[in-house]
């Protein structure tokens, strides 16, 4: 029996050097990596890499960099487990194993000439950032561009300066909200779905890209339904355990799909059957 001979082994990482570390929050940091191959590292917004820290282990992290700057690989990481905490201890000049890019992408081509609505919750702004940067760079391809982002509190903003910069543009709507705040905060206190309820858009010509905790996306979908945005125009980014990134390890199964290759970005109507099944 013959089997195809692989051209490369998807389980073996390439190595990239950390060229800059940005502290976003006490437990969230952004790495800028010099692309592992001289030719640059091209990816589609929404995709992820498996990042490996020497001896500590490997984790799937979505790419948060600018798709138009393939010379630099950017990842925003929250230190929540053993591996990501080890990663937080790394500095400029340290090396990181990279496998990828893997997974599906935000449907940016499909969204051309449509209202493009980004709905981000917490760290969910990171996987959306490449798509937002693309939309801003190719602004004329879209009608309205709307960014709605929710964070826990005013102390938990991620990409704050960038959000402020985007907001200052005349051709983009950026609304930011927090779940809780004291009275020193002058901005909006509400959950993200409340922003969806009020934003100006053309529901039948909107493509909505959602990323954040699953519960937040459930509430956001409900609000989009109320606005009349059809399910096939809603896209969500799912998260599951992953060990390989290429469909071998079985961990990321979500119904009949593998989040690592069929996702992480799914068209909502295609997973609606799974979305409300508990513990699936």
């Amino acid at each position: 029996m013959t089997t195809p001979i692989p051209l490369f082994d998807p389980m073996v990482p390439a190595f990239a050097r950390i060229s800059r570390v940005d502290r976003e929050l006490p437990d969230v940091f952004t790495w800028h990596l010099a692309a592992p191959s001289g030719a640059g590292f091209s990816f589609a917004p929404g995709q992820f890499n498996m990042l490996y820290a020497f001896g500590a282990g490997e984790v799937p992290i979505s790419i948060s960099g600018d798709p138009n700057r393939p010379e630099e690989l950017v990842h925003t990481i929250r230190a929540v487990g053993a591996v990501t905490r080890a990663m937080q201890g790394l500095r400029k000049g340290d090396t990181i194993g990279v496998r990828g890019p893997f997974g599906s992408a935000w449907p940016l081509a499909e969204a051309r000439d449509q209202d493009l609505l980004f709905v981000a919750g917490g760290l969910g702004v990171a996987p959306l950032r490449p798509a937002i940067l693309h939309a801003l760079a190719a602004r004329s391809l879209y009608r309205r561009v709307i960014v709605l982002a929710g964070f826990r509190s005013p102390a938990d903003f991620i990409f704050r300066k960038e959000l402020e910069r985007w907001r200052s543009r005349f051709d983009v709507t950026v609304e930011v909200t927090v779940d809780r705040a004291d009275t020193s905060f002058r901005g909006t206190v509400a959950v993200v779905p409340a922003l969806i309820a009020e934003v100006e858009l053309d529901p039948a010509a909107t493509v909505a890209l959602l990323c954040g905790p699953e519960v937040m996306m459930r509430f956001a979908v409900r609000e989009l339904e109320r606005r009349g945005v059809p399910h096939e125009r809603i896209h969500v980014s799912m998260e599951r355990s992953m060990k390989c990134g290429v469909g071998f390890c079985g961990h990321c199964q979500y119904g009949p799909t593998f989040v690592c290759k069929d996702g992480p970005v799914y068209r909502f109507d295609r997973i609606e059957r799974l979305f409300y099944v508990r513990e699936i």
């Binding site: 437990d27 917490g122 826990r152 779940d179 959950v191 779905p193 409340a194 937040m216 509430f219």
Partner: peptide, 18 residues
Amino acid sequence: YHRLERVRLQRLDVYKAS
């Protein structure tokens, strides 16, 4: 009802680091 729904989501504190 809508406001209640939002309060529920707010109460879940979904962005809190686990």
